[in-house]
Design a protein around this nucleic acid. Structure first.
Lengths: 236, 236
DNA sequence: CGTATTCTTGACTTATATCAATGTCGGTGG
DNA sequence: CCACCGACATTGATATAAGTCAAGAATACG
């Protein structure tokens, strides 16, 4: 098993477990590699495996009414995917698409359920993770309700560099490929509005990056945009 | 203790526990009665108690940026309130306001944490509940992203009668007082837009009710409004 | 009976979606 | 190596849903 329990020790969901327990869990895992664009599972599919991201980044999306898919969240290494509790007969509610070549640890749902019953600490760890995820989703709901599109996008970008920012010379790079369409789907707007806003900010050198790239050059300015009244329109 | 463990048996969060465990939990609870308008806790307060709704209905809201508070969810009998997992040093992220005279079961956070550690089934039960809550919040996020205001309100009303509908002669009543302002805060719109839409539907006899009342007369019509393209504007 | 809360309604403004092109990059194959 | 194609991105013009501003009416409540 390439997947040493050492890898597991750090993860919040396994924090409360003993070394033996972690080893048991690790030895039951298999690894699966997926390339950008592939999906781990699709909306509506039977839930028969439990996934944990070892490396890479995955977007969880759902097909909205008419507009293209809405992205519910982007998950990073260490995070579980899909239902975590008792999944008897449940179906996936989202599609998990790989954004960047990805390794997943996979357990058959049956073994996972056994672990969950046998190891009291495991459910506690998951509870923490899901509770945090709920908090993030609630934050986004409030943003949708209270903020206009530019501020929602500013908040999103700040969240992205917080979760997956890599420092470069004089800027912070979002560490996985992300399109304008993705940004729109994450903020409940259209590709067009998102593009306009981002190019505007690019002119002001607040952000940067090319196709599928996102680079933040001026964090304080972004924080301003996220917080204060939206900036005056065209400065051309 | 007025709070017999019989009451607890039915609740999903205690489903996996033994009778003894349920009895232990029940005997550590105290009951607290709150009147409409009072709050169990407020945004930012230290989390030092765990709550379970025995009877009544509670709205969980957060103060949005500038618009009035956004309501994150309305909770009904049997549901827990506030953080459920390890709450060490955490603060409440919402304000819990009673909509209808309410009895809450309350445990000091310390005893609750002990139960959580001692009774493996408890964390599993909570995990189920929080996971479902996450799913509902995600649904609402998608509604916010994809649906216009009338359809969001239609979805909300359907959800309300599903969670707390009481059948009457020829209609279904939402079983707790709810204002137009509340409906606006639940759907991310303004009192004004909500009022316009609701009076319009009232004229078409799809809904009814007076101040703080909500009554659905024609469910299929509401389902239509929630699903299909928004109805033609004024029919005066 | 007055005061506060809740709700309705109209006129106006604005953010943002929609419609419609056009441009640019990056890879694939001729 | 160039041409082409598909994915990704920009940009303008226009339409419209829904927010804001401003009154006012109806109902509950002390």
């Amino acid at each position: 098993m390439t997947f040493a329990d050492q890898n597991l020790r750090r993860l919040p969901i396994f924090a409360a477990l003993s070394d033996t327990e972690r080893r048991d869990i690790a030895s039951a895992a298999s690894l699966r590699c997926l390339a950008r664009g592939e999906s781990a599972f699709s909306e509506g599919a039977q839930v028969d495996e439990f996934f944990l991201i070892v490396s890479g980044h995955v977007k969880l999306s759902r097909a909205g009414a008419h507009r293209d898919a809405v992205i519910l969240q982007i998950e990073h290494p260490g995070e579980p995917l899909g239902p975590t509790g008792d999944a008897q007969g449940r179906r996936q509610t989202t599609t998990a698409t790989v954004l960047r070549d990805c390794t997943l640890a996979v357990w058959p749902m049956a073994s996972w359920s056994r672990f969950l019953l046998d190891m009291p600490g495991l459910a506690m760890g998951l509870l923490q993770v899901i509770e945090r995820r709920l908090a993030v989703t609630q934050d986004r709901l409030i943003e949708m309700a209270c903020l206009d599109v530019p501020r929602r996008i500013a908040h999103l970008i700040l969240r992205l560099i917080d979760q997956a920012g890599r420092h470069e010379e004089d800027s912070i790079r979002v560490d996985f490929p992300i399109t304008r369409q993705d940004i729109a789907a994450l903020t409940g707007t259209t590709l067009h509005s998102a593009s306009r806003i981002l190019t505007h900010w690019e002119r002001q050198r607040i952000i940067g990056g090319g196709r599928r790239e996102l680079l933040v050059r001026n964090v304080p300015a972004l924080v301003d945009l996220a917080t204060a009244r939206a900036a005056a329109p065209e400065t051309s």
